[in-house]
Design a protein around this nucleic acid. Structure first.
Length: 464
RNA sequence: GGCCCCUUCGUCUAGCGGUUAGGACCCAUGGUUUUCAUCCAUGUAACAGGAGUUCGAUUCUCCUAGGGGUCACCA
């Protein structure tokens, strides 16, 4: 049985790096038919926020990750932690420390001045005198004073850390609330975690947590510390580098499949394969294949993946997603034609919306350069309009319009460009864009004639 | 600064002592296409540096350099 968890602190939105660790844990648990829990690290009562919690849940829902059981809130498990703190106190594995904050700060300052590493000096470790008045003590755990602590990491191998790097750290604050490294160890153990996949930044917490495991007699889980995601310059990813909030990707028009695919390939690979559906990730992911080195976030790759997923997305789904961008074409009679054409040239749903908009609505303005070129053949455009206008048979599909254009060109012995340029400008307002037959088919004959009229008028006003 | 970790094309990566160092994104070129894209084909491009070990190192060891992480009564 594999049991994993994702344990964010509710300090804001769900970070893109957080989503990756969540995904990795999710995959490993689900692949093995195990459990994946969501736990909220909110022991610091001053810092938790309900909105942050909702943001995380919302992001989970968008990307389609789910978790087993109820969300575990550490703030609701204080009784349990208190019990374990007391146990350690009773067994002499932890002790009250009456050092005030000021004293601690002073000690630290001295150590820094001497170029030493700041660490608690253990002055109350074996204290049995009369405690000073007026001090609410903290509880510190007795960490080993010599030897080494070995972190067995599934990604990086064994990492040895000298015991004097780990001081007697605080497990309960003066107000009685427990601290991070203590509760993480207690929770991971009592929740039955077998595998902990987390960011590299937690590597240094691991020896501390091992001290807690040891003191409490728990067996530690298997740890995997995955390297961080850096920005394109190889530096720490920050808001300046673009979106770090998972939900920003939704509003920018990325598909969750693309985002997950992108993230899973950062630090993990399976041969030469680039495209992974969730099912394939489930089938192929194994934390032993995780990379040791950090990776850089690369928007080009995400865009490529996103355009891939857009092309492979059903038009119904696309039409639904477009509604978030104020494009409503779900019941458009040419929905399939329109989207088949537009999705080939869209990297995001936002771009798709723009491309659809360009076809469906009359041009709001005409591109200057395009007009300059197109105007020369305004007469041909007029003739085409007349020709199209007198056709009586029903025109429906792009191929019908294609036929009309062909016939017209043959009859007048013209090359495509002569008509194509002005027609494209008339229909779209610019020179690049979707196939003209598709545009005409989508908007229909009447609308086509109308757009041509407007354009011709515009061209003529430009004369001179 | 102390401690720990990392280092293959610009980027994501394959490689697990002997390879013309492979794939993907990006970029360039050509083809398909009514334009733009898509699609297809081809191409440019990497083992951070230095010592070892070895018949032979991208692969193992050490050193250097560079990058990252961490040093709270935050998580």
């Amino acid at each position: 049985m594999v049991v994993t968890r994702f344990a964010p602190s509710p300090t804001g939105y769900l970070h893109i790096g957080g989503l990756r660790t969540a995904l990795l844990n999710y995959l490993w648990a689900r692949k093995n038919g195990g459990k994946f829990y969501l736990r909220i690290e909110d022991t610091d009562l001053k810092r938790n926020s309900q909105e942050a919690m909702e943001a995380i849940l919302q992001a989970f829902e968008w990307v389609g990750l789910d978790y087993d059981g109820e969300v575990v809130y550490q703030s609701k498990r204080f009784d349990l932690y208190k019990q374990y703190v007391q146990q350690l106190l009773d067994e002499g594995k932890a002790y009250y420390c009456y050092m005030s904050k000021e004293e601690l700060d002073a000690l630290r300052a001295q150590q820094m001045e001497r170029g030493e590493r700041a660490r608690y000096d253990g002055r109350y470790r074996d204290f049995d005198g009369t405690p000073p008045e007026g001090i609410d003590p903290v509880v510190r755990i007795k960490a080993p004073q010599d030897g080494t602590i070995v972190v067995q990491d599934g990604v990086k191998g064994d990492i040895s850390i000298s015991a004097d790097e780990v001081d007697d750290f605080i497990i309960a604050r003066a107000d009685g609330t427990p601290t991070y490294n203590f509760v993480v160890a207690v929770d991971d153990a009592t929740m039955g975690l077998t595998d902990v996949i987390r960011g590299d930044d937690h590597l240094y917490n691991t020896p501390k947590q091992l001290v807690v495991y040891e003191a409490l007699g728990f067996t530690p889980p298997k740890f995997y510390h995955v390297p961080m995601i850096n920005n394109e310059q190889g530096k720490k990813l920050s808001k300046r580098d673009g979106a770090t909030d998972v939900m920003d990707y939704k509003s920018m028009g990325y598909l969750p499949e693309a985002l997950l695919n992108f993230l899973v390939r950062l630090g993990w690979s399976y041969g030469d394969q680039e495209i992974f559906s969730l099912e394939e990730m489930l089938e192929k992911f194994n934390p032993k294949d995780l990379n040791k080195s950090p990776s850089s976030y690369n928007l080009d790759k995400l865009n490529w993946l996103n355009s891939h997923y857009i092309k492979n997305c059903s038009n119904d789904q696309l039409a639904k997603m477009l509604e978030a961008f104020d494009i409503y074409i779900f019941s458009h009679d040419k929905k399939e034609i329109l989207l088949d054409e537009s999705k080939e040239r869209s990297k995001t749903i936002k771009e798709l919306a723009q491309n659809v908009y360009m076809i469906v609505t009359d041009p709001e303005e005409f591109d200057k350069k395009a007009v300059k070129k197109a105007r020369k053949n305004a007469d041909i455009l007029k003739e085409f309009k007349a020709y199209l206008g007198q056709i009586e048979q029903k025109l429906h599909l792009p191929s019908d319009y294609h036929q009309v254009i062909e016939t017209f060109l043959n009859k007048n012995d013209l090359g495509f460009g002569k008509l194509g340029q002005p027609l494209r400008v008339a229909l779209l307002g610019q020179m690049a864009g979707p196939g003209l037959d598709v545009v005409m088919s989508t908007i229909g004959k009447d609308q086509t004639l109308k757009r041509i009229d407007t354009a011709v008028e515009f061209f003529e006003r430009q004369e001179g």
